[in-house]
Structure formats: structure tokens, C-alpha cells
Amino acid sequence: MTKESLIAISAIALGTYLLRYLPLRASHRTLHASTNRAVVLNRAFEIAGISVIAALFLHSLSLPEGEAPSIAAVRLTVSLAAVGAASHAWKNPGVGVLLGILCFALFPLIL
């Protein structure tokens, strides 16, 4: 590792930490006020959180490699449906993820 790499990594680490810490600290103090404005702001940030997760989900989607696109799409859709159904039924994201991975891993054995 060169000196330049070390400087870049350290600067990115510090910047990333501040991007996470400063808004958390500021909001932790202000969002708990009981004014109407704070309540609206609170819900707006909650919706922002759900929106970001939806965007991250879109980002993370990709067809599995090494298969025909149509089969890969079916495999992905079936596995995602399993995740959605299991998470809804058990109200537990962990169960949904585990069942989804299992479904995704076993799919090539079925087809």
C-alpha cells in the first residue's frame, strides 16, 4: 500500500463517518420535539427511509449469470416472490431472506 493510497483511504473513511454521524446526531436531538412540524418532519424522514430501501432494492437487482435470460428472469422472480410471501406471512425479514436464498439455490436443480 502506497502513501497516496493510505491518504485516500483515510480521507474517505473520515468523510464517510462524518456523513453518517453528523445527521444522526443533529436529528436525534431535534426530531423528538413534540411540535406539529416535528411530527410531519418525523414522518417525512420515515417515508424517505422506506424510499431509499426501495431504491437500494432496485439497485441490487441483477439477473443471475450463466443462464439463458428467460430462465434467469424466472429464477429471480420466483425467488423474490418467495421472499415477499415468507416475509409477509412471518413478519420477519430474516425468514424471508433465508427462504429466498434456499429457493434461489435450489432452482437450478428443479429446472
Partner: peptide, 11 residues
């Protein structure tokens, strides 16, 4: 992607 979808469904 499974994790993000599962969280969306729950939330």
C-alpha cells in the same frame, strides 16, 4: 436484493 425486499414488505 432479498434483504431489501423483505424489509420493504415488513415496513
Amino acid at each position: 436484493p432479498a434483504l431489501f425486499l423483505a424489509l420493504l414488505v415488513v415496513m
